[in-house]
Measured scan of single mutants.
Amino acid sequence: MQRVNMIMAESPGLITICLLGYLLSAECTVFLDHENANKILNRPKRYNSGKLEEFVQGNLERECMEEKCSFEEAREVFENTERTTEFWKQYVDGDQCESNPCLNGGSCKDDINSYECWCPFGFEGKNCELDVTCNIKNGRCEQFCKNSADNKVVCSCTEGYRLAENQKSCEPAVPFPCGRVSVSQTSKLTRAETVFPDVDYVNSTEAETILDNITQSTQSFNDFTRVVGGEDAKPGQFPWQVVLNGKVDAFCGGSIVNEKWIVTAAHCVETGVKITVVAGEHNIEETEHTEQKRNVIRIIPHHNYNAAINKYNHDIALLELDEPLVLNSYVTPICIADKEYTNIFLKFGSGYVSGWGRVFHKGRSALVLQYLRVPLVDRATCLRSTKFTIYNNMFCAGFHEGGRDSCQGDSGGPHVTEVEGTSFLTGIISWGEECAMKGKYGIYTKVSRYVNWIKEKTKLT
């Protein structure tokens, strides 16, 4: 034993070699072989497995989906700052455009905790909710729209109204504003409101030439003092309507412009014939205590009207009353817009006519005020429907199939267009061939041609 100890002390290297040989010859039971080890760690190889990531292109799944990435790591994937920024906006807080917040056709661009709407022409605001041009839906104005110097929408209202708090709607500024039905039992019968379409306001006024200088022999019209197929109006439903009495009662109609003036057809009036105007009328054979009678003290036909040349060209006249009318729910003026808007309103496509005229061709006159909704007829169809001249200051309205029309005794009465609950004068009943005849239409004086003249002559002093 002493000898062994001496050998170990003198030859430590020998001992180490012996131990190493023993270990190498022993069977290893701690580690699995290569094949079995792979069965336990069965993990798919990654895209760049075996390579240094710093030297390969980034992978979106590896960089940002398996674990949260930084902007720089995302930049490695896209290799483009702009594309990385677009991805980053949604990656950080989701897609803010998912709810489609942009209105009126706006395009949404996502941002971090926010979004941006790219608005089409005519709109602005956070969600493109603000109209900035009158060309689109009248700028959301209830009545009139004008573009300011910086191309912003400025709404306005006709006389007797003021802008509401929203700067879009119009509200009454006087007790009985024009064009409004205020009798409670008839307010439910107000005709369907007309909503502004998209309009090209630059070209809204037709490029028409008034044929002022045409000389033409007097034409022989049949029954051209021209509501057939209409309905009984309720008291106060058309408070701007008046009836004219002269040699015979209810020979023509008219509309209240203001307390002192009536507008009617020029062919209705004769110099030297006494005319009485009755406002607030409903049943011409009954006294309903809503009527107001006034005498006409002055007749002003349009300066281009000449019955000797043509009885229905420039067929418009103004009547001055001896005493002002007292405005109330049964006696209310009709609204008159400017030339541009009167023309736009007419193009809405349908209007209402009213009167006490004959209820059928050569038949009896109506006792109760009649009204009828009539569609506008395109000019080409209008011209083809008659052998008589249709001037540019006239328009056609009615039904091709016949059966409904204005008729004798309705002449001078109103053709009105309702705009968001307020009625505007767009025409004056003038003439036609018979009444409600198939293929024939009622012919009306186009008020847009005469609004400046009306307003100039009827100013209240």
Rank of each mutant, 00 (worst) to 15 (best):
N5R: 10
G254F: 01
V227M: 11
G106K: 03
G427M: 00
K188V: 12
A149Y: 12
K45A: 03
M8L: 12
K311Y: 05
A265G: 05
F123S: 06
T332Q: 04
Y441D: 00
E53H: 00
N283K: 06
D410R: 14
D338P: 12
I15T: 08
F345V: 04
T332Y: 05
E27M: 05
T186W: 08
N258M: 02
H282K: 07
L244K: 01
D338R: 04
R379Y: 10
V183Q: 11
C97W: 02
G105M: 08
I262P: 00
A250E: 08
E456L: 08
A192E: 11
T276W: 07
E418Y: 10
I390F: 11
Y201E: 14
Y91S: 05
R379E: 11
V56A: 11
H415E: 00
F395V: 02
L14V: 13
S114Q: 12
I136V: 10
C435N: 04
V181D: 06
C145T: 04
Y91D: 04
T422C: 05
Q90H: 14
P175V: 07
P197W: 07
I300G: 01
R62H: 03
H400A: 12
T332G: 05
D410E: 14
Q90Y: 10
T218W: 11
S182T: 15
S411Q: 15
R75H: 15
H302R: 03
E159M: 08
E10C: 12
V257A: 03
E208T: 15
P120E: 07
A173N: 08
Y444E: 00
F348G: 12
M8C: 14
S220G: 10
N166S: 05
G427E: 01
E281G: 11
L383H: 15
N393D: 09
I390D: 10
K126D: 14
H361K: 14
Q185L: 10
I15W: 10
G427D: 01
F345M: 07
G351R: 02
V419E: 02
E433T: 11
T133L: 07
E433L: 06
R75E: 05
N203Y: 08
S354D: 01
N452C: 05
S406K: 12
N151Q: 10
M437P: 07
C28W: 01
K311V: 07
T276P: 01
E116Y: 10
I210P: 08
A307M: 11
E53R: 00
G94R: 13
E35W: 07
N100L: 10
G254T: 01
T461M: 11
I40R: 08
E72C: 02
T190F: 09
V277W: 01
E208N: 14
A436P: 11
H415P: 00
A380W: 07
G442Q: 15
R162H: 11
D95L: 09
S411I: 15
V181W: 08
Q57K: 01
V174E: 09
Q370I: 03
A265V: 03
L319A: 05
I443T: 06
C134M: 04
N295K: 11
K234T: 12
V243F: 11
P235W: 07
C155E: 01
R373Y: 06
W118C: 15
S423E: 03
L244T: 02
S204K: 12
I7C: 09
G355V: 08
Y330R: 09
R449G: 15
G439M: 05
A308R: 12
E270D: 12
A9N: 13
V77Q: 03
S184M: 06
I299R: 06
G125P: 03
V199H: 11
S99A: 11
V416H: 05
E54F: 01
R191L: 15
V353N: 02
E323F: 09
S385Y: 15
G280K: 02
I299Q: 08
K459L: 10
V77T: 08
G125L: 02
N343H: 07
H415Q: 01
E116P: 03
V263M: 03
A233N: 07
G125Y: 03
N113I: 07
